[in-house]
Each structure stands twice: as C-alpha cells, then as structure tokens.
Design a binder for these strands. Structure first.
Lengths: 328, 328
DNA sequence: TTGTAGGCGTTATCAA
DNA sequence: TTGATAACGCCTACAA
C-alpha cells in the first residue's frame, strides 16, 4: 500500500507537504506541488480512508435510513441509492443502509432519510448529526424533492391542452406535504382555466383506483382525463378503463406521477410526470456533505439559519395514455 | 466518545484486556470478562470503526457492484441491498455501491457482484479481493442464488397437477446459467410426466411475450398453462390472454418467476416462484465475510478448494393466475 | 513556506 | 492470563 510517506520520499519532501498538497494546496509553492503530483501519480497513491477518518475524528460514514416496511420497498430506492452512492464514492464517504430499527447502531457523520411520514419526526428529532430528507416536509428539515406542484401543473395543463373536457384528480389519501403540493398544482391549474376541479383519494394501490373507475364508470363522459398522484394509481385507472371497454387515449386520458419503472410496465405505457431520481440522490449527498463540513453546534441551533430546500423540476413524459403522444 | 481506554479505566484493567474481551474472549478469565462487560455496558461503548480498520490494515468496506445499465436497475436490487446491509451493519462493515465504471476507485476488502453476464468475467477476473456473486455462473465463482431448476420444477409440476393439458415454457433469450437451469427444471418435469415440452424464448420484455401470445393465439387450446422464466414475461402473457379474451385461470394458466414487486402489480396477481431475495442478500454478505476472514493467497489460488455454492429454495406462491388459487 | 512531534482508537507482539 | 509498547496512515499544532 502506498502511503503519504512513500509519496514524500519519492518527491523528496516531508509527508506534511504531501498532506498539504491534498488538503490545503494554497499553502504550498507551485514548484513543490508539481513534484508531489508527479510522485502521487507515479506511485498511484490513494489516501487511506480509515486513517483519514481516525485522524479527523469522524466516521466518513453516511447512513441512508429507509423508513418503510421492508417488503414494500419501492423500486425507486434502488435508483435513488445509485445517485447517492455516486456522489459519496467520489468524496470518500461510505454508506450504511439502515432501517429505523437498526439506525442507532454505530456512529456516523450524517443522515439521509427517505420515506419519512409525519409520525416519524419524533424519532428524527433525536438524531444528533446533520440530516437531509428526501421529500418535502412541514417540520422545517432540509430536503430535496421534485417540485410536486409544478409536476401536476404539467400534467393537468397538458390534459387541458389536449382538449379533455372533464379532468379528475386521483390523489393519495395521506396527510403529507408532497400530496398537498400535487393537489395544489392540479387545483390552481384548473381554477386558472375556469374548470371545475374534482378530487378523489385512495390508498396508494392500483386495485383501489381500478375499483373506483369501475364503480363510477357511468359518471365519466367520453373525453375525460384522469390526472393521478402516482403511477400506481394510474395503472389501476388504466386497467379499470380497459375493463369497462373505454378507449385510451381517445376517449379517456391518464397521466401518472413518478416515472420510475411502473410507467414502463403499464400497457399502453403511461404518460407520466417523471422525477429525476438519480440526480436527486446525488444532490442529497452533496447537500449533506456541505452541512457536515460547515457543521458547528451554533449553526445547527440557529433558528434563523436558512433552510435548504432544493426542488428539481420534473418532466412530463408523453406516452400512450394521453392523446397527443404522436407529437413525441 | 467512549474509547477502549475509558472502558479499561472503569474496569480497572489494561486496554488490551478490553480489546481481548472483544476479539479473543477465550483468552480472558471469566472474572475479568464480567468486569469489562459491565463497564462497556455502563459507558455504552461502541468500537471505533476507523481505528479498527487502520490497525488491522483493512478497509472494512465491501463493494456491491451493480453490473446493469443504471436506468434498467431492477426493483429487486433494493431488497437485495437491504439483506446485504443488514448483515454488514451487524458486523461493522460499510458498504460502497458502485457500477463497473467506478468500481476501481478506492480500496475494499471484498466484492459482491450482481447482474454479471458472461462477458463481464474478463473484468471480474482482475479483481484481487474475495468475491461472491449473486447468481449462478459457469466461471467457477462462488455464488448465492435461488435453486432455479427447483423453481421451475415447482411451477411446472403445479401446472400439471392443476390439470392443464398443454404446458408451454416462455424463456429468456440469454445464454446464461440461470436460464439454462430454469429451462432444465421445466424439461425434466415434463419428461418425467411423459408430456411434450414446448419452449419459446424472448428478450425479457413483457411486450414481446404479449405479442407472441396474440400472434399465436389460435395454437393454444383451452386448458393451457404458460410457465415463464420471469414475472416480466408472465405479465406480458397475462395481457395477451386478456386482450384475446381468454379466461384466466380457468382456460389459461400463468406462472411467473421472481416474486419481487411485479407479481403484485399484475392483475390478476401472478402465481409465481418467489425468491427469498432479502435472505439471499444476507447470506452473500455472510459468505463474503467468511472468505475475507480466512483469506490467504494460497487458499485463493488453490484450484482444489471447494467452491461455495449456496442455493436457496424458492417457493411457489399460488395466486390468481392458476386454477387452484382457492386452495391458498 | 516547510518540517517535526504527537495523537486519533485499535490491535499484534512480546515480555512479565 | 495480563500488561506495556509500537504500529497502522493521516492531520493538527507548533516550530523553524
């Protein structure tokens, strides 16, 4: 294993100079820097993760907390994780994937929390390291999310432009921030267009949405679009319409939300609001590292400090469940 | 932070004794052990990951290599990862999730490799740490997998017992070990029952399976069961049958393979061969740690050493795409 | 601007 | 069986 010392010898300097070239390059003359870089290169030097952590009295470990029942684990976690991992790897941080149950075993430098519901915040509050949440929240925690309101604005206004007359919103029966934002995006867009909003809500299961469509089939005139708060619901709607013999997308349109995996599984493939999950994962890691590096007890306590909220713009992917897919 | 030293003082012993209590308890008298345990407990001592790694000249990092295009990432990865993470966390190992591209950045103690295809083995061969693969292979690497042959034995023989007359196997067009095993399980079971096997193969996409069903609809008599090599294919079959107006499960049965996520998304829900993905994840981690702890250059080189192959028995989940779901 | 000394928490080695 | 010492690779603090 190549160490600082080896590089130092090769470059004919002390190991502190090498260390400085890495961590405080501005304190070293260009001349020496060149020598050191050359030596590092030739020896293929890679800093030792553990030694770094030990000396700095940090762990260089980030915990990714998944607050969902294990058997429910949504497919987007895999993608989110890839994004997180990418950034972390590049900055020599290791990852620990945990559930709430075993989250307190062992130390770490910071937390990424996903799937947090309102009743999780008691627990989250007790964590004593920097935290970034995946998902907007009303508890004043820093977060990264896609712009949920803008997302349903996109799908709702597309439905309007496509000429659907009746536009129904299928929401998730959950008193969570992201759901409110999605409903708001729909409401605002409808109102601006002078259209009558109509919202129904279910648990996030395709079967409930399907059942709803079948039970209320007579209420839907041709030329109706269903704007959904998730692809799961959208798939249920699609099945319900197919079962009742409705024509997609000519007479009935469907727009989903999420754009991870499920939208591709559906047939016809879903028009959906796609979240850039991978990029969001990287951003979360980036923000967390930023917080870790600035971390000071005062800063953390300061009620006036600015809250970090990063919203990614989702994108409307037009596919085969809304009319003008041929424009795509 | 509580260190070995703190515990040692509290227990009135040297820190080496404390260290031994943790790592070589058989070398310490019961008397002292009790004292040390008590002190550790009272102080809530947790060993320092980085210090351990530094002293032992290891990294205590395991790389999980995902060899798939990022946008394809299958949902089961999330579940597998939870299994791996669970074991690793319990043993103070950290995880690094990487793709092939960035797998060589930074050191590690071992590799877990998933999604390896035949053309990946050139690269895998160059890795110089213990390796466990997820998935059987013909390259003599240690692996954990579900018993693929047994899996299709289960689904095929259930189809026979359910009284389906014609039993068609839909395979994945891939020259990979797992696919051969699944086809073999079907073939053997058919032959033993004196039935005529019939195999067709596609890329692993639901649309291809659906198309096949529609194109060949006239060839399938009522009382046919489609045994599939993946839930993706099974979903396609289900759609094809529905489109053609076939009756599931009375006239046409479907059995999938995998049992992660997709089987639940289908409607009717799929009868499928479920792999215990979470448990397999834990087992992979366990085997890898075992290898790491025994690791010696000779052992690794020894061509006679026993290959580790752990097969998990999958389970047939009877749901609504085969006849006797009411038995469930 | 550069170098020296000491310490981070743990473990292997050797001595008692 | 137990304890003292040195080492792992890096970084901070201080000295030159």
């Amino acid at each position: 294993m190549v160490t600082l010392n080896d590089v130092a010898k090769a470059a004919n300097v002390s190991k502190m100079t090498v260390s400085r070239v890495i961590n405080h390059p501005e304190q070293v003359t260009d001349e020496l820097k060149q020598l050191v870089f050359k030596a590092m290169d030739e020896l293929d030097y890679h800093p030792n993760f553990a030694a770094k952590a030990l000396a700095a009295n940090t762990t260089r470990i980030i915990k990714l907390v998944i607050l969902e029942k294990v058997d429910t684990v949504e497919p987007y976690y895999a993608t989110l994780l890839m994004g997180v991992a990418q950034f972390l790897n590049a900055h020599q941080y290791a990852l620990q994937v945990v559930t709430q149950k075993n989250a307190n075993i062992g130390d770490c430098d910071g937390y990424i929390i996903t799937g947090a519901r309102n009743n999780d915040f008691d627990w989250i509050q007790d964590l004593d390291r920097p935290i970034i949440l995946y998902g907007e929240n009303r508890h004043n925690y820093d977060f990264v999310d896609s712009d949920n309101k803008y997302g349903t604005f996109l799908s709702t206004s597309a439905a309007i432009n496509d000429g659907y007359q009746q536009i129904v919103f299928l929401g998730i029966e959950l008193k969570e921030s992201f759901e409110y934002s999605r409903e708001r995006g729909y409401m605002d867009t409808m109102q601006k267009s002078g259209l009558q909003p109509q919202i129904v809500r279910f648990g996030n299961h395709s079967s409930e949405a399907q059942q709803y469509i079948q039970d209320h089939w007579s209420e839907f005139k041709k030329n109706t679009c269903f704007v959904c708060s998730s692809d799961r619901l959208a798939i249920g709607v699609e099945r319900g319409i197919q079962k009742m013999g409705g024509n997609i997308p000519e007479d009935f349109g469907i727009a989903g939300f999420d754009g991870v995996f499920l939208d591709q599984i559906a047939e016809p493939k879903l028009t959906t609001v796609k979240q850039p999950v991978m990029a969001m994962g990287s951003k979360i890691a980036e923000l967390l590292m930023q917080k870790i590096n600035q971390a000071s007890p005062e800063a953390e306590q300061n009620p006036n400090r600015e809250r970090m909220e990063v919203m990614f713009s989702p994108e409307l992917i037009r596919r085969n469940t809304t009319r003008n897919y041929h424009l795509n």
